[in-house]
Nucleic acid binder design. Structure first.
Length: 443
DNA sequence: TCTGGGGTCCTAGGACCC
DNA sequence: TCTGGGGTCCTAGGACCC
C-alpha cells in the first residue's frame, strides 16, 4: 500500500489514466490543484517510528484517555478520545505509550515544510494536516499528482512517516479524498467525475457531519451523499437549521468556494482543566482559575493581543456543563484581571446551580480578540473598599509590569521558573503540559 | 483509571437603537 | 382581535473538528 495510488474506482493507478482531465473539460473549469495532506494516525506513527518494537502492534498514545491509536488498534475499534479502560476492553493486547510531544511538534512542522517546498500557498489546519494549492507550481514541478507523489516519498524517506494526500478542485473534496485514500494513499478526483465519486460515499465523510447530524439525516432516510444531494434545500434547512442545511447542500454538489488562507489568526483562546471530582469551594476554584488565567493571559500577551469577552465553563459530575460570559468595554490581557473576572463568573454560575456537590472541570475562554496597546488600565470591577481590603493585589500599571516580568523570566528560564503563587502549587494534571502546549495554536 | 485539551461556527432569544 | 420592523450586539448552549 505504501506507494499505492488509488483511482476513483479503487485499485487502478491514477497515472494510467489517460489524457489530463483539464484538457478534456475545457477552459472555464479549474483543474484539480488543491492538495489535502494528512499524516496517518500521526502520534501513533511517531511512536512506532521511535520504537521499532511497536511496529505492527496495536498501540494507544495516552492513558486515561486515548489521544491517538495506531491502525492496528483502530482495527479493534479503538478511537481517539475514548477512555483508556474502554480501549483496553476492546483490545486486551493494546499497548499504552506515553507521548513524545516535542517530537510530534518537530515532525509535524517538518512535514508541512515539505509542502512548502512546492508552494507558498499552504494552509495548515492542525499539527498533522494542511491544504496546499499548487496551481502556480506546475511549470516547476510537474502535475499536482507528481508533486503529491514526491511529497509522500520525501515524508516517507526523510521523516519515516506515512502521509495520505487527496487532490481535487476544491478544498472540501480534497479533504474527502485524503480520508478515502487512507491509510498511506494518494487519490486524485478527476474534475469530470467529482459527483460520481462524492455521491457514493456515506454522509459522515462530509466535513461538518458528526454523530448528531448523521442521526438527523438518517431520520429522513439519508445516509449517502447522493441522497443528500437529491434532498430539497428547504427540507435540509428545516431539519438541520439554515446555515448547516444550506452548507451541506452545497458540499453535496461540490460547491465549495473556500480559498486557501495562509495567514489565519485565532478568534479566541482558552484553557481548561479536568479536576477529577472536587467540591465547588474557593479552595478549589481560586487556584484553578488563576492557573488557567495565567496560561491564557501569557499567550495573549505573547501575541500582543487582548480580549473583550471572558467566558467560563463549569462541568458537573454528570457531565452537564454550563457557561457564563461577559463582554467588557475594553480588551484585557492581564493575568489578575482575567482571573478575577473568571472568579466572578464562576460564582454566578454556581449560584444558579446551588444543589451541585461536585465540579469536574473549569475552563476560561477569551474571545473578541483585539490587537492591544502596551498598557491597560485597571477595570473598575470592584469597589474601592474591596481594593483596600486586599492590598496584596496590585492594580493597573503595576499589574501589567508584573505580568511582563513573569513573561520575560519564563522566556529565559522556562515556563516553570516562576508562577503565580497558588498557580505554581497546582495539583498534578492529567495531561502533560507538553501536550497542552502542542495543542495551542499561535495567535 | 469514567469520560483531555484547544479551537470554530451556528442558533435562538432578548436588549437596544433608529 | 391586537400589539411595526429591521439591524446589531450580547449571552447560553450545542455540534463539530483535530
Amino acid at each position: 500500500m505504501e506507494t499505492g495510488t488509488l483511482d476513483l474506482a479503487g485499485g487502478r493507478d491514477a497515472t494510467e489514466r489517460a489524457p489530463s482531465a483539464v484538457a478534456l473539460i475545457g477552459v472555464e473549469r479549474r483543474a484539480a490543484t488543491v492538495l489535502h495532506a494528512d499524516l496517518d494516525a500521526f502520534y501513533a506513527s511517531v511512536e512506532q517510528l521511535l520504537d521499532p518494537s511497536l511496529r505492527g502492534k496495536p498501540i494507544a498514545v495516552g492513558g486515561g484517555v486515548v489521544l491517538a491509536a495506531s491502525y492496528e488498534a483502530k482495527a479493534f475499534g479503538v478511537r481517539g478520545g475514548m477512555p483508556g479502560r474502554e480501549a483496553k476492553q476492546l483490545c486486551p493486547q493494546l499497548i499504552f505509550v506515553g507521548g513524545h510531544f516535542t517530537e510530534y511538534q518537530r515532525l509535524g512542522d517538518a512535514a508541512i515544510a515539505v509542502l512548502n517546498d512546492f508552494t507558498p500557498a499552504v494552509e495548515r489546519i492542525s499539527i498533522d494536516e494542511a491544504f496546499a494549492d499548487v496551481a502556480g507550481s506546475e511549470h516547476l514541478f510537474g502535475s499536482p499528482e507528481a508533486m503529491a507523489r514526491e511529497v509522500r516519498r520525501r515524508v516517507r524517506v526523510e521523516l519515516g512517516l506515512p502521509i495520505s494526500i487527496g487532490i481535487a478542485r476544491t478544498k472540501h473534496l480534497a479533504k474527502v479524498a485524503s480520508q478515502v485514500a487512507k491509510p498511506d494513499g494518494l487519490l486524485v478526483v478527476d474534475p469530470a467525475r467529482e459527483l460520481d465519486f462524492l455521491h457514493e460515499l456515506p454522509v459522515e465523510l462530509l466535513w461538518g457531519v458528526g454523530p448528531a447530524t448523521k442521526a438527523r439525516l438518517a431520520t429522513i432516510g439519508v445516509t449517502r451523499i447522493g441522497e443528500l444531494a437529491r434532498t430539497p434545500g428547504y427540507s435540509l434547512e428545516r431539519i438541520l437549521g439554515q446555515a448547516i442545511g444550506s452548507k451541506l447542500g452545497d458540499l453535496a454538489w461540490n460547491r465549495d468556494p473556500r480559498r486557501i488562507v495562509t495567514d489565519r489568526r485565532a478568534r479566541s483562546i482558552g484553557a481548561q482543566s479536568a479536576l477529577g471530582r472536587k467540591p465547588p469551594t474557593r479552595h478549589v476554584i481560586v487556584p484553578a482559575l488563576l492557573h488557567l488565567a495565567d496560561r491564557v493571559a501569557s499567550r495573549l500577551r505573547a501575541g500582543g493581543r487582548g480580549g473583550r469577552t471572558i467566558t467560563v465553563r463549569v462541568r458537573f459530575a454528570d457531565f452537564r456543563a454550563i457557561t457564563r460570559s461577559i463582554t467588557l468595554p475594553v480588551s484585557i490581557a492581564a493575568t489578575g484581571m482575567i482571573s478575577e473576572v473568571a472568579q466572578d463568573l464562576v460564582r454566578i454560575a454556581l449560584a444558579d446551580h446551588p444543589g451541585e456537590r461536585w465540579i469536574t472541570l473549569l475552563a476560561i475562554g477569551v474571545s473578541h480578540l483585539e490587537d492591544q496597546a502596551e498598557l491597560q488600565l485597571e477595570l473598575p470591577l470592584r469597589s474601592r473598599n474591596d481594593e483596600r481590603r486586599s492590598p496584596g493585589s496590585p492594580t493597573g500599571a503595576a499589574r501589567w509590569v508584573a505580568d511582563r516580568a513573569v513573561d520575560a523570566i519564563r522566556e529565559r528560564f522556562g515556563r516553570d521558573a516562576v508562577g503565580y503563587g497558588a498557580a505554581a502549587l497546582e495539583a498534578p494534571r492529567s495531561v502533560p503540559d507538553a501536550f497542552r502546549e502542542l495543542a495551542e495554536r499561535s495567535l
